[in-house]
Design a protein around this nucleic acid. Sequence first.
RNA 1: GAUUCAGUAGCUCAGCCGGUAGAGCACAUCACUUUUAAUGAUGGGGUCCUGGGUUCGAAUCCCAGCUGAAUCACCA
Length: 574
Amino acid sequence: MNPLELSEQEIFRRNSMEELRKLGVNPYPAEGYEINTNTREILDNYNPELNNFQEVSIAGRVMSRRIMGSASFAEIQDEKGRIQVYIKRDDICPDEDKALYNTVFKKLLDIGDIIGIKGFVFITQMGETSIHVKELKVLSKSLRPLPIVKEKDGKIFDAFTDPEQRYRQRYVDLVVNPGIKDTFIKRSQIINTMREFFNAQGYLEVETPVLQPIPGGATARPFITHHNALDIPLYLRIANELYLKRLIVGGFDGVYEFAKDFRNEGMDRTHNPEFTVMEIYVAYKDYNWMMDFTEEMLERVAIKLHGTTKVPFGDKVIDFARPFRRVTMIDAIKQYTGIDINGMNEAQLRDVCEKLDVEVDLTMGKGKLIDEIFGEKCEGNFIQPTFIIDYPVEMSPLCKKHRDNPELTERFELMVNGKELCNAYTELNDPIDQLNRFREQHALSEKGDDEAMFIDYDFVRSLEYGMPPTSGMGIGIDRLTMIMTNNVSIQDVLFFPQMRPEKKPVNDSEEAYTALGIPEEWVPVIQKMGYVKVDALKQVSSGKLFNDLCGYNKKNKLGLTNPSADDVKKWLAN
RNA sequence: GAUUCAGUAGCUCAGCCGGUAGAGCACAUCACUUUUAAUGAUGGGGUCCUGGGUUCGAAUCCCAGCUGAAUCACCA
């Protein structure tokens, strides 16, 4: 690492690291550090009358220091929280040698360093539960200054807020911004609650291929990759539906998977190219049963996280108490547009769209037109959890036709806060019908619909062997987490949301400079001054460069031997 | 993809009717044995996102680009 590329504070920290080594203190020791409690346990349970926690050992990151001569306070942050520690020189340095306090703690440690401490818990005169330190050990030296976030009476000062930096350097965000961890802990609780619920019913958690020869089960543009040994294209899955149903054919009566899916489409507040979906399939059930099941699942999640079914979201409160409203798609459209589309043909639907100012194009079939009307005029109105049921057959090629109306399918979507959260079917298990639906999709794609489905003949073959009547449901885990944790951006519920790569300016190599006759020790100086390309350097006048170099040398007290004006002229001439 | 806003010290931000770059925290040195946004004193730290243009002179004005955010469009 070229020291000229480092900030002043980084240089100080690297020097401190070297000083530690000289004192025989390993800044990165290999051995573990045994801890016997954590900050939250202490803060929750310390009681001076019980005289407990008198031999604690904890480890964490130094988050603040207040040094007052031979005594100091610092705050240590571990996974659970922060606690103040009190460090007295003569306690950690009982002998003549006071270096551990005077040098190591006061001079060489910084905010961000990770240390282990042993001592006893007490309460300060100001009433704060603290640890009186008897032993201190350096566990890891931090070479970059951490953003300092301070807090008093609940007010945050200098919060680390730049979204770009927070997402790119989530590790920093997690360390310095209180409350960020909580979202991700809740995300894990959501998943665990669902998993426990499914397992209690005896359903099996399974894994199915991420790399698929035919990207099926949904309509979306896939990511494509190539397998060298087989010399075939493979797609990252856009859904796992067809594989899970094959397992139902194989004789499992309930299977589920928490799956990362991938879609090669736009990114915004509610879309990330990779996202997590839970899909579950249960044999001998229909979509009515699945609605009951979904309600119970979501009610459990809400209660687990919030202790109640009422979940605050922005300025709203969303209530996940069972039962949820159930509205047919046709009734929903009737309610919000006053138009009854029941039994209309494609031409009539086009007229309706025109009348309602809903934008359509010629590739759209009947199903898609109805979907547009619903999406445009109805969807956003369903804030409280509402099942929209009985979708047109054209837009649900994997879903069984409605038992009472062949124009419709037994499908529901669960709307929450005006957005789709779940999608579920009474699954289509008639292999002849399935093949026909695939063919209709194929026809749509010939018509220009670039997101119509591929035909998966192996899936049809599996259905020909016989799949029991089955209901399946998928739920977006990222969107569920957003609602349950009151976040409006998907980036806030993903540890590492997709970002455009950071571009680093590529410097020309040192050899490119030395080839011009420039001495090695001057190369970093020239680059630091902004001439990271030899070509750019050659555009400069030799007089200016000569002056700049000598000036830089003097100003920064580098102690280099200045080149002569002639030397500089020769470099640029080479 | 369109529009708007933003990019200045490690962090949060000021400066923007053009005239050699500022604050708080952080950092360094000193003082201080119960502080808590510790305090007091002193000091160091900048390719003002990048590249062009206008100008005697640009962080500031103009153009282009990069990155991010918001809104809209598209997309589940």
